[in-house]
Write a protein that binds this DNA or RNA. Structure first.
Lengths: 193, 193
DNA sequence: CGTTTATCTGAACGTACGTTCAAAAAGTAA
DNA sequence: TTACTTTTTGAACGTACGTTCAGATAAACG
């Protein structure tokens, strides 16, 4: 056998990434073999190399796509009041991260498996995202509506707190995502005012 | 050759755990070989099996020791005012975690490499630690000094926020650990009152 | 000193890994 | 149908893995 019926690059490519995302999140980059990814897709290991030059690049692609999605989806309207902008940020962050737990997990946990250069590129993207929040905080401080002595620290603290939702929240539990978001917004609001 | 000069179980045992801790934190459980750990200690791979039945148990031991240390070190005095108790908790959590970044990293990142049974045991220990904070929050709510609508969520949010310090704080940077602690305490205090 | 016990070596076991590549089959276009 | 391109197979490459164990040496003990 060789080429299989219905095989197409446009189909297999995304399926390779989906499989890798799922398995990396499940077992960790180093613990997942190319053969395991191939099995999930339904091809032999060799076929994966039509879609990535190597395993490391496959990981990097997943992370980079995730960070680019995050940056593209985030919106901030500087004409709004800082309180309103911060509220929108909190809601967006929780919603966006909750929708893609695997990608979030990988983007935070597999950084050490990147080459130095790839690591730097991911960190640059993450830094850009953090800057978005810090800008809101700074504008709020300048406007006198936030009292934050160090906006950089507050930025990191808020993001860590919000991302933490992913580690415990499950749909169908005691609270809805909207209720959880409201509570986190309450804490964030009070923490900066 | 065989037994080496000066070899002692009391010495090699801790060195094996230290090496494993360092290397697991650096590269991840799956990516670190028993041979690499042995090389760090200065023995052959076979010698490690005098100190652990297998690699998985070595990881579990590291995590369990860390969690037990955490629980043993944490102190809460219910006779103090809730505000004071919470302040002590914040300071303790940041200091304790900052002192052992490798163990913290492993205890949070390598959970998926545990067997189901071992995972449950670590989670039980973590849950006990979280309960300590939640008790403080509940007491504060009961006393009317904290306004928190869901103490469970607040517990998880605060812990995520505080543990986040480890991901960015480095001694010798712009701020001292004491200054950082003060700022986090400020945010936590405001978030619950 | 001689005997026993604790500790480590070095080699070996079967298995799995990431990656490569010629050959083959399916799709595409004429 | 024929010629060409895209996609996949299946086998193979060298390397590394976790673990076991008989044998060897150092330490401890009487």
């Amino acid at each position: 056998m060789a080429r299989t019926a219905g095989s197409h690059s446009d189909i297999t490519g995304p399926r390779v990434r989906d499989a890798a995302l799922k398995l990396f999140a499940q077992g960790g980059f180093a613990a997942v073999s190319m053969r395991a990814i191939a099995a999930e897709v339904g091809v032999q290991a060799g076929a994966l190399y039509n879609y990535t030059p190597d395993k490391q690049t496959l990981l990097f692609d997943l992370m980079e796509r995730h960070m680019n999605e995050l940056l593209a989806a985030g919106t901030d309207d500087p004409s709004l009041a800082p309180q309103e902008r911060l509220k929108k940020f909190v809601a967006f962050h929780i919603r966006f991260h909750h929708a893609r737990p695997d990608a979030v997990f990988i983007a935070y946990m597999e950084l050490r498996n990147l080459t130095e250069e790839n690591f730097a590129r991911i960190e640059a993207l993450r830094s850009r995202y953090e800057s978005g929040l810090e800008t809101i905080l700074r504008d709020g401080v300048a406007a006198g509506v936030f009292q934050v002595s160090d906006t950089k620290i507050a930025t990191l603290a808020i993001i860590a707190m919000l991302t933490g939702v992913n580690t415990w929240f499950r749909t169908g539990g005691r609270l809805s995502l909207e209720e959880v978001t409201a509570q986190y917004w309450d804490m964030v609001r009070r923490a900066v005012t």
